[in-house]
Design a protein around this nucleic acid. Structure first.
Lengths: 334, 334
DNA sequence: CTGAAAGCGCTAACAA
DNA sequence: TTGTTAGCGCTTTCAG
């Protein structure tokens, strides 16, 4: 097969135990011997078998990301932050995508990953998802983002407040008929989207404006879905003067629909998104910016901490969002 | 620790060997016994240790993606396709990001992953990258995309032709001063970007138009970089009447700069991108669409094939690109 | 068709 | 400080 610790031991004239110790930088190895062993290992181009190490130690040296979708900008940005942290820590990253929650997956993640990783990074899974439940049952370190609930070492943003501030921004501009483009049907209290709904309600209530179900449509978190949703809103007998989409991607689609109809963002209809992706700047889209890279990095750091110190008490991290007002709600700069 | 094959064997009243055979669906196990064993395993909530299996069989049951950046739309789309294929095959996915080629990474990927995976999916790495060389030396199955060269089981698109058709589209609209926004400095013949440069040259040459270095600027493959590049182009004494960006992301930035200056895409300056991301539709951006999801899926399939049949001769897959003309070059629809 | 036994390559007590 | 000796949990000949 390939060169093993035994080979290194033989060539270096020591035991495999010493090879193992030297390679892992144990203090208890004679510095000179150690150098010698490292030399030999280098020369033989030795690479330790992670499988054997994992079997012997019980730790895998890797963590898994569990998330329903990989094709969302928010995920991409979190991944950027996660990858950076993990690489710095020398921890491998396994990606497991559960797909649409409505369709059951061939092999549930806890089955596949249980003994393969040291911990889980659960992103955008509902707190009520059966997958999550199974993973928690494993009793391994888990850090979450996007699931509502008070878990240790998880990462949060104030989504309810963020959504409320979005609506308030529009109200402040004088809008009274405000359309909402949400993501997916059947969002339960365990998922962030639900918080955004609550935030909208909060803002409307404070302003004494009744909630109008007619102006709430689904956009599937995609550009196309957002475009279709906007079409429905505009075709309404009494169309909204402002629209708040629960993600930038859906807002992009809404902008497209407006363009097709010759409507000017921020002039004819105000529109805003949520997430603060790079492209929203290029589109002059008002949005709630969310620090996804930092969310990813923080989640990864928390998880690594949890893995190293399983019993240490941890406190959730809360990260800020903020509203970035642009021409899509303010109109073209004077 | 947790429940092992031995536990299942004991409870089921058989040997661990039979448990192993039954669980892997070997024909040689009595159907009835087999059902019984599966039952017990299910009941005990048994999950085989991948580390132990890997150690015993020599195969990891996973593949690694090696790529310099994860924060690009193209990567995200490939990942979508890859993940789908791999999940269907029950193969795990490890993600390894090399970072900027110019800055050396802490641990070379081949060291870390050599014995951890059964094969590599190398995306957007230069054919002349030292990382690639090391990985190839491992002698394991490798499927590539975005590295130019004739490797088996790799996936290609005709980037040279695609870039040429982009320029020809602009030429066909009467443009003679065409700006180019490329991605990164020092692209060598081993990377796809180089092919795009060649394609541009091809088109200019066929049209008898001299190449003007003044109109070629760098955009770093980001929205911000594209915006800055566009600024430089427009500040030119004799600005281009059309601009071709080597990625949609950079074209988005260019559009932003135009908007800030009150220039209308397709009217004042024609602009086109490359990649065909979903957002480009929303922006009415003319682009060369590239089937990244399909590229990812094909690459993953090829790799899995290679792993299963290491000696079978393979032929590279070539996937099509095509030009999608929109308002950013054609002007607003009549 | 099934069981016994010998590893896979590494780590961790325990001795020396 | 270093070597010896058992495993970690699974797979896989080889017998039966």
């Amino acid at each position: 097969m390939s060169v093993t610790a035994k080979d290194v031991a033989r060539v270096a004239g020591v035991s495999t135990a010493t090879v193992s110790r030297a390679l892992r930088g144990f203090e208890s190895v004679d510095p000179e011997l150690r150098r010698h062993i490292l030399d030999v290992a280098e020369r033989l181009d030795y690479v330790a078998s992670p499988a054997a190490a994992a079997l012997a130690t019980g730790r895998a040296g890797s963590v898994a990301i569990i998330t329903p979708f990989v094709d969302r900008l928010a995920f991409q940005r979190m991944l950027t932050g996660i990858e950076r942290e993990l690489r710095a820590a020398g921890t491998d990253l396994l990606l497991y995508c559960t797909g649409d929650p409505s369709e059951p997956h061939p092999v549930p993640p806890h089955k596949r990953l249980a003994r393969r990783v040291d911990g889980f990074l659960v992103l955008s899974l509902s707190a009520e998802s059966p997958d999550l439940e199974k993973i928690l049952q494993l009793g391994m370190p888990v850090t979450m983002f996007g699931s509502d609930g008070a878990w240790n070492s998880s990462v949060y943003i104030d989504d309810r407040g963020g959504a409320a501030s979005a609506v308030e921004h529009l109200l402040g501009l004088g809008h009274r008929r405000i359309g909402i483009i949400y993501g997916r049907e059947g969002s339960d209290p365990g998922v962030l989207e639900y918080q955004r709904h609550l935030g909208c309600h909060d803002a409307f209530e404070r302003a004494g404006i009744p909630w109008d179900e007619q102006l709430v449509v689904r956009g599937d978190y995609t550009v196309e879905g957002g475009a279709a949703a906007m079409t429905r809103l505009l075709d309404h007998a009494e169309p909204p003067t402002a629209v708040f989409a629960f993600s930038d991607e859906m807002a992009f689609g809404a902008l497209q629909t407006m363009r097709e109809r010759g409507l000017r963002p921020g002039v004819d209809v105000a529109i805003m998104g949520y997430d603060g992706h790079a492209v929203s700047g290029a589109l002059e889209l008002t949005t709630i910016s969310v620090p996804f890279e930092q969310i990813g990095a923080t989640a990864a750091k928390n998880l690594l901490e949890d893995i190293q110190h399983p019993d240490r008490a941890r406190v959730p991290s809360v990260l800020p969002t903020n509203l970035v007002a642009r021409a899509s709600t303010l109109g073209p700069a004077a």
